[in-house]
Design a protein around this nucleic acid. Structure first.
Lengths: 150, 150
DNA sequence: GTTCATGCAAAAGATTTGCACACAG
DNA sequence: CTGTGTGCAAATCTTTTGCATGAAC
């Protein structure tokens, strides 16, 4: 798995053991197709791993995010969502969000031209503002067919 | 002010009076340059308007957002931020965010080409997914100069 | 007098933190 | 042993809701 090597090398001098809960969370993220909230991870893992506490999920996600293994997303519904960065790179996508029902569509079919421009913009921004740019987030907001029908 | 006419016409059949607290919030948003959190609005308004409660702020912001007068942003720091849509249109910008210290830079200097592509993508997404697209959000994430120095 | 808006307090969620114990090296 | 990771409970923080009062129409 992508994360295990990095996990074993640890994070910024802090120890980082690849424990059972952490493995479970990583494995779960690598299997799940969508971006998952802490609660969703918790509920799903609870079946096969009854003892696990919510705080462990949060602490692990935070660790993984700081290690760069996981990406934390804020999509506007009041809770953070997480996805494996490797997965994001493989199946890079942007978001189309219904502001009425909260439905999220990951689209990846019009990315080619988008990504070209993104790269260009990244370079300009990096130069002008002295940033090291690591990621981007593009979302379109609107009303989905279903909600419009009502 | 942009909002007053719309406010007086009401919202989807619901009554919507242009009351003093609502005026104060609108005025504050029209003066403020950045996207403000509910708490920030509350603190600032509290000086000139001691009685105002936080819930009024939230209720008003929600109302204004549903009316389309205000845009609600989720920038990943655990609280929502709001800005006048009219202002957004006048001074449309995208975001550059430091994932370490949370600093947010609004940039608007490379938007021309971005917006062209955005329009094209909007059309394609609208057609393919049957969405009515109302808005978009583009952000770049990275590490700012200051944080990198440490 | 009915409806709408507000403040306050309580409630609800999401996330973080303190602490004592378990466990690995 | 020593330090790291964990679960649980409590604490925080943001946002929402219930309710009684007051204002607008």
């Amino acid at each position: 798995m992508a994360g295990s090597r990095s996990l074993r090398q640890g994070f910024k001098g802090h120890a980082s053991r690849l424990t059972a809960p952490r493995q479970a969370i990583l494995e779960f993220l690598s299997k799940s197709s969508k971006h998952m909230s802490a609660k969703e991870i918790y509920s799903s893992l609870h079946r096969s791993y009854p003892g696990m506490g919510l705080s462990t999920i949060y602490r692990t996600l935070d660790l993984l995010a700081r290690m760069g293994i996981v990406t934390k997303l804020s999509l506007g519904d009041g809770q953070s969502r997480y996805e494996l960065r490797s997965k994001k790179e493989e199946e890079h996508h942007h978001h189309l969000i219904c502001t009425n029902c909260g439905k999220i569509i990951n689209y990846s079919e019009f990315l080619d031209e988008e990504l070209g421009l993104v790269k260009k913009t990244e370079d300009k921004l990096a130069k002008k503002y002295n940033f090291v740019i690591q990621d981007h987030n593009i979302e379109f907001l609107g009303i989905c067919e279903k909600c419009r029908g009502k």
